[in-house]
Simulated assay, not measured.
Amino acid sequence: MFVDHDKVGDLPSAAARVSDGDMVALGGGLSARLPMALVRELVRLGRQDLHLVGSAHGMDVDLLVAAGAVAVCEESYVGFEQDLGLAPSYRRAAEAGQLEIRETCCVTILTQLRAAQMGLPFLPVRGVKGTDIRRMHPDYAEIVCPFTGETLVAVPPLEPDVALIHAPMGDRVGNLHLEQPYVLDEHFARAARQVVATVDRLATTEEVVATGVTIPGHRVSVVVEVPFGAHPTSCYPGYAYDRQHLAAYVAAAGQAQTAQDYLAEWVTRPGGEDAYRAALDQDRLDRLMSWSDTIEEWKELFV
């Protein structure tokens, strides 16, 4: 009987699978299930010239930009949900020309990932026709449909070097369970050359299978147990996003110097991710985990 090998690793060695200049796919979306522990570890490792791809993201992209780790950003949107606005470090770097912006849309990225999964040299899309997105993507082309004569945009396959994914639960051989919405995580896992995963909790294979395997272990290179690995974003059903922490970050990121102060206090301080978790208020974490107790409890988290 085939038995897969143990893929459990530690956070620094897992993040070290990302090299300078890599195309890095970020799992999750907006302020949900972002791979924040891995992002913080990339900053600690001093990674540079990364090419980030994702659907619509927030603090993960902004933090990496603040740390000077990003050369290219290929996203549909970078900002914060609710009333927290756009991503300050990202916007500042874009306006200063310190960052190459290749704005795209979620469906186009999904189509590119599908092309990679199917081993095709391109797939057609219609949604970006007539937009400036074409100008930002000289790698896109035009193709005439042989059946209708319609001119469509042909997009090439997207094959990230590494996909970073955070899941609420996984097993020691890399099987991951995600709660919906999956965003692009399933497709990143199939298209990327390797998948680096963190989980809030390592479980038995039987438990993961019973709950539902979203990403099978054979697609995952390494898995690391990191409680609250998506904090300050959410990872349902375990915990809601930490609006207070996100708001404090957005305020700090408003200026270049205070963004560096945030990095020094929360990311690059000695002790790594253990020190990050130790600095968090345990009462606040308990409240984030109690989001589903009552509607009133949930509402109070976002006051």
Rank of each mutant, 00 (worst) to 15 (best):
A192P: 03
L120A: 15
M289V: 07
H5F: 14
P124L: 11
A32I: 12
I215E: 02
C235K: 01
G29F: 07
L152T: 07
E225M: 06
R269A: 15
A116H: 01
N175T: 06
D60N: 08
V250C: 09
D4F: 10
D60S: 14
T131W: 04
R114C: 09
C105R: 12
S234R: 03
Y249D: 02
M36G: 01
H218N: 15
K299A: 15
R126P: 03
C105I: 14
M118S: 13
Q117L: 13
V267Q: 05
V222W: 03
E41P: 06
Y90A: 06
H187I: 00
G170V: 05
L99G: 02
H51R: 15
L280C: 11
I133D: 03
L38H: 01
D286K: 11
R219A: 13
V226L: 12
E273F: 10
S221V: 07
T204L: 11
P156Y: 14
K129T: 11
G149L: 11
A163Y: 04
P88C: 09
V18W: 02
G46P: 04
D139M: 09
C73D: 11
R33F: 09
Q117R: 14
V226T: 15
A252T: 04
R91A: 14
L64M: 02
E296G: 09
P216F: 07
H187V: 06
T104E: 04
